[in-house]
Design a protein around this nucleic acid. Structure first.
Lengths: 300, 300
DNA sequence: TGGGGTCATAACCTCATCGCATGAGTGGGT
DNA sequence: ACCCACTCATGCGATGAGGTTATGACCCCA
């Protein structure tokens, strides 16, 4: 019943739309025209939709094909991010530009930034290391990486830093939860008293939450369930286990399509800055400066 | 050199992370453990990364696996949107809820909304028809669809409508373009005098642009190249043909990762509302009301 | 020390896909 | 009027990626 489509076929569809010919799209992909023709037919059979209008001189996308092609392009963009990120992870050592990022930045922002940098300077090898915020600071200090990205609000004075993007933690519940129907914001004390699905202590998200609760005068959060990854927490919330507090970067898509609902909370500030960090005093040059520039522009 | 990964393998990776076992992930996918084991090994070989930590009792994702799994989840979310949209396109006729949407809404928002509705009411068959804004209004008026979504700002009085989301046209150029380095906004007359890559006359985007130029007291746009689809325009801009004016919904990802650069323009308002439309006077009930509600909540 | 887990390996098989060659239809050039 | 250039679809072997079954190695716990 599932039947996931083939990424090659999706790329072919996009290319057919751009080039106006199945054969030309085939050569662009380094394959032959009959193979491409069959792939298209197979994709159409799978989706049970007519996607291309085959005329005797060229092919055009049908209206349905246009729309599906756009959806396919979004898929391929995400795949591109995955491949870019994977390559950066791979060349962690002996890369020309070594970057360390905390999980939130690495998951949601780093592949885009690195991809843009590599489009500007093709052939540049970027190495990405993913750890927690304190480890990132240590890597920067020891010179093992040229540039770091952290979400932690407490930055030591011996390092230079610059804010590059904003993040915000959101209280999220599944659509069926009583809080989802509330019209008034949840009170801060109510949040502090409610058992939450949380990350383990020491993670950036958990720390930000605890700190914000303390700053607002509340007690520590009540753990309902403690999980080791953001996605695990997310899945637990979607499954209805209970509310959680997660980065909007992590649950943006879920909020947009309604798998999760955000609940506003009174009297509490859950914003946090995402900062670039590099060895103190030094001025960034070369690719490190370029990446910082890209990150600054990309974030609002 | 490209080597696109396999979607089944990505789903497997996500599932391994969630279930903590290759074998259990395999049964979840309806396959066998050796097959899944081989798939994982193959994915790791392709990405040249160690993604899972195989212990004798279960498997956990490595840090790299965590991150890749999150990227994979994004890919799969987009694929889910594609499949949801394709199913809706397919059941255009004889669906329980018939929806028509203009291209911008259909491309970027409709799959998410429909997906959410189908999660809330499983088994509901939704039919989606994609045309231009004026045709949507006609379909609503004739009763061929229950609900329509348009981007056009001029709504006839015989239909009920409600604003559900916002869109904005952006002037975009490739990173190398002189406008990309400008610090001052481009003057409106400058924009009107510059040849642009545009959609064909009659498309919603083209009309909004012309109307905004006229409202600001400028002449009509100078077509540099006229193309039949938003993505064709986008590709032309990326390829450096010239500036274009496109919906931020269409180029959001490109702006975020720097394939395109937005140029601000003085004295011109390129915002537009996206509206739901239904037969006048009538009150929406059942799935149509639910979908409208979802759309209202999703768009800010 | 045996049983219930887990994952990896080996051998075999099936079938989807590929490439080549070919057919068929249209449009433009001569 | 004719033919060439260009497009896409189809038929036919051959290849190989991926699936299943069976088995082995290892760890934890009783």
């Amino acid at each position: 019943m599932s039947g996931l489509p083939d990424l090659e076929s999706l790329r072919l569809l996009v290319l057919v739309g751009e080039l106006g010919s199945i054969g030309r799209a085939a050569t662009e992909l380094g394959t032959t025209q009959p193979a491409a023709s069959k792939r298209m037919a197979s994709l159409e059979r799978q989706l049970r939709l007519v996607l291309v209008d085959r005329t005797r001189r060229g092919s055009r996308l049908t209206p349905a094909g246009q729309v599906v092609s756009d959806w396919a392009r979004k898929v391929l963009d995400e795949v591109d991010g995955l491949l870019t990120g994977a390559e950066a992870l791979r060349s962690e050592r002996d890369a020309e530009l070594r970057v360390a990022a905390s999980l939130t930045v690495a998951e949601h922002l780093a592949p885009g930034w690195i991809g843009q940098l590599r489009r500007a300077e093709p052939g540049l090898y970027v190495g990405l290391q993913v750890t927690n915020s304190t480890a990132v600071l240590e890597l920067v200090r020891s010179g093992e990486v040229d540039l770091g990205f952290v979400e932690s609000p407490n930055l030591p004075a011996d390092l230079s830093y610059r804010r590059v993007a904003a993040d915000r933690l959101a209280v999220v519940v599944p659509p069926g939860h009583p809080w989802a129907r509330r019209r008034r914001p949840v009170r801060m004390v109510e949040l502090a008293a409610t058992p939450l699905v949380v990350r383990e202590p020491g993670s950036g998200t958990r720390e930000t939450l605890e700190k914000a609760l303390a700053r607002a005068g509340g007690g520590p959060a009540q753990p309902l369930l403690e999980l080791g990854s953001t996605t695990a927490v997310r899945s637990a919330v979607v499954a209805g286990v209970g509310p959680a507090v997660l980065s909007v970067l992590a649950v943006g898509a879920d909020l947009a399509d309604g798998r999760l609902v955000e609940v506003s909370v009174e009297d509490i500030d859950l914003r946090r800055a995402l900062c670039a960090v590099w060895p103190g005093g030094r001025r960034l040059v070369g690719p490190a400066a370029a990446l910082l520039d890209i990150a600054r522009r990309a974030g609002p």
